[in-house]
Nucleic acid binder design. Structure first.
Length: 208
DNA sequence: CCCGGGATGATCT
DNA sequence: GATCATCCCGGGG
């Protein structure tokens, strides 16, 4: 387990692409990670750690290889793997996975049979997460396990681009996904444009 | 198929 | 009171 811990004791930017192909298992459902995003520490304006530790984000400052689970838009639970160098904060958001076991269970939890885990909120539903799993040890626990890849991902198929759904540091290519995976979340380029326009507008207001 | 907009509630200012 | 690391549905092309 020592080598696993050291794997996560690096910058999330390095860990994120290497997490593609790892598997997550939780109470009957197993999925292969196909899309991730790196969130750095207090230097990253888009990171929950940007403004320092709070009750909600404390796991980001905690042990690597543990979970950071947070509630999004009041209703969804999103899942991160904590990864950072010593004394810093950081994590890798798991944005999408391909369900390879327990599809029926995942479909029940989701309330539909398609897009079982193609998005961070959907992935949280498919896994049946709850907020109690925030801080959970993913490498040693049994309720929620993170499993090293069973088949190596072809490095040629790993691509990167801007992170989704953020309004700050939108230009950094910290999103990584497997290019030919059908389970990757459908990104709407228009949304990014709208967000860009909104932030540009804010800049213009500030300059007046 | 693509796009717009509402739901929804914890969190922090 | 504003801001979300989101999802889903319905309307128009």
């Amino acid at each position: 387990m020592v080598f696993l811990t050291s794997f996560f004791e690096r910058s999330p930017e390095l860990v994120a692409p290497e997490l593609l192909g790892w598997q997550l298992e939780r109470e009957g459902v197993r999925l292969v990670i196909v899309e991730v995003e790196a969130y750095l520490g207090e230097s990253d304006p888009a990171s929950h750690a940007y403004c320092g530790p709070t009750a909600r984000n404390k796991s980001l400052f905690g042990s690597v290889g543990h979970a950071y689970v947070y509630r999004s838009y009041g209703i969804h639970l999103c899942f991160n793997v904590v990864a950072h160098t010593p004394g810093v904060a950081g994590a890798v958001l798991i944005r999408a996975g391909e369900v390879v076991r327990g599809k029926d269970i995942a479909a029940l939890r989701r309330g539909r049979a398609k897009d079982l885990a193609s998005g961070p909120g959907r992935l949280g539903q498919a896994l049946g997460l709850n907020i109690e799993l925030d801080g959970y040890p993913l490498l040693t626990g049994s309720k929620l396990r993170l499993i090293p890849p069973q088949h190596k991902v072809d490095p040629q198929k790993i691509v990167s681009g801007p992170r989704v759904g953020i309004s700050k540091a939108v230009e950094l290519p910290l999103r990584f996904w497997i290019s030919d995976s059908p389970a990757v979340s459908k990104s709407r380029t228009s949304r990014v444009k709208v967000k860009l326009k909104a932030s540009e507008h804010r800049l213009e207001e500030q300059q007046k």
